[in-house]
Amino acid sequence: MILQGKVIMISGGASGIGQACALAYAQEGAIVVIIDKDTTALHTMQALLPGPHSLLQADVAKGAEVEQAMKTILQNHGRLDAIHNNAGVAQPSKPLHETTEEEWELVMQVNVKSIYHTTRYGIAALRDSRGCILNTSSLVGEIGQDNHAAYAGSKGAVNALTKAMALDYASWGIRVNAVAPAGVWTPMLRQWSTEQPNTAQIEQYLDQIHALGYCPGTAEIADVCSFLLSEKARFITGCIMPVSGGAELGYKHLA
């Protein structure tokens, strides 16, 4: 078990990629602390992650709530070995000029400023443990995506932050990396695909953009995240790790 004894905090860990990561970390021997604002999803996770794991209701876009969550983690577990900044929003599906100020602010608060909050209030504990930080980014932070300007921009910021933070904290023995999927079959993506005019064509497209020929589930992402948080990745920092089946080699288009 490559994460044996580590205390790992993951934001947005009650559903989707975050849920798969939380379960994988626990399976690898970690004590997992999920921070999520979705109380219904947290309730579901309680049955999947009983003690010694912890589930905290908090909005990572709000600094005071993150500060309190970090205090609770240290009170309950005595240490913190890793922060996985996974919480994120992908909306709106619009070009930049159609994006409202409220939509822009929400994307940046959740996808970018939350990393500021968890780092500000968690860095002292990570310095004590010589721990690590993992950010959930996206391939679109590198290659762009039509009709998702705010989202792509936020993930580009996540990538830049990852590299800058890796340099800032290397002298403390803290590694900082990011994982960058392309498409991933989460409940959110399944729902989105059913709302498209040609559902079958959308599913085929999502398979074909990946050079390996299929759109992955969350387990493929969780496996790589477990590795990056483990000592097996002890000499990796500042890496934006694509877990994309080769999609960065060129998106394919349906004929």
Rank of each mutant, 00 (worst) to 15 (best):
H253Q: 14
S54L: 15
M188Q: 12
T237N: 10
G29K: 08
C239R: 10
M70A: 11
L228S: 07
N111M: 08
A150Y: 00
G141M: 05
D207P: 02
L48D: 08
M45R: 06
G217I: 06
H53Y: 05
S244V: 08
I123W: 02
V140L: 11
Q91A: 13
E105W: 00
L126E: 08
M9T: 09
H43N: 12
S137R: 05
Q201P: 00
G29S: 11
A61W: 00
Q27T: 13
A69D: 07
R130C: 10
Q75W: 03
C132Y: 00
A164C: 13
F227G: 02
A180W: 01
S11W: 01
S114K: 04
D81P: 11
D146M: 07
V107S: 14
L228H: 07
Y169F: 15
V60E: 02
P187N: 05
G173F: 07
T186V: 05
K37Q: 13
E220Q: 14
I143K: 03
Q91R: 06
P197D: 06
A69Q: 08
A233W: 02
G141F: 03
K71N: 13
T136G: 01
T99C: 14
E67W: 00
D146L: 11
Y121H: 15
H148V: 06
S114N: 05
D223T: 13
A20R: 04
G238T: 11
G16Q: 05
A222I: 09
K94E: 07
S171E: 12
P95R: 07
A24D: 10
L42M: 12
P197N: 08
V158F: 03
D128V: 12
D168G: 01
E67L: 11
R190W: 01
H43F: 00
Q46M: 12
L49T: 09
D223L: 12
W192D: 03
L249N: 08
A182D: 11
A200I: 03
G122I: 07
A69Y: 05
A47F: 04
I2M: 12
Y121W: 15
M1I: 08
I73A: 10
H53F: 03
T218D: 03
S226Q: 10
A61D: 01
I17C: 09
H77R: 10
N147F: 13
Y116A: 03
R120E: 06
T136R: 01
E203L: 06
T99L: 10
M9E: 04
A222N: 05
I209V: 15
V110T: 15
T72I: 14
L189A: 13
A149F: 02
I8D: 06
R175E: 05
V179H: 01
R120Y: 14
C239A: 15
L167A: 13
L228C: 10
Q196H: 04
N147W: 09
H148D: 00
Y251V: 09
T118W: 00
H97N: 10
Q191G: 03
A64K: 11
I35M: 13
Q4A: 14
A64P: 00
I221Y: 06
G238R: 07
S137Q: 07
G213C: 09
A150I: 02
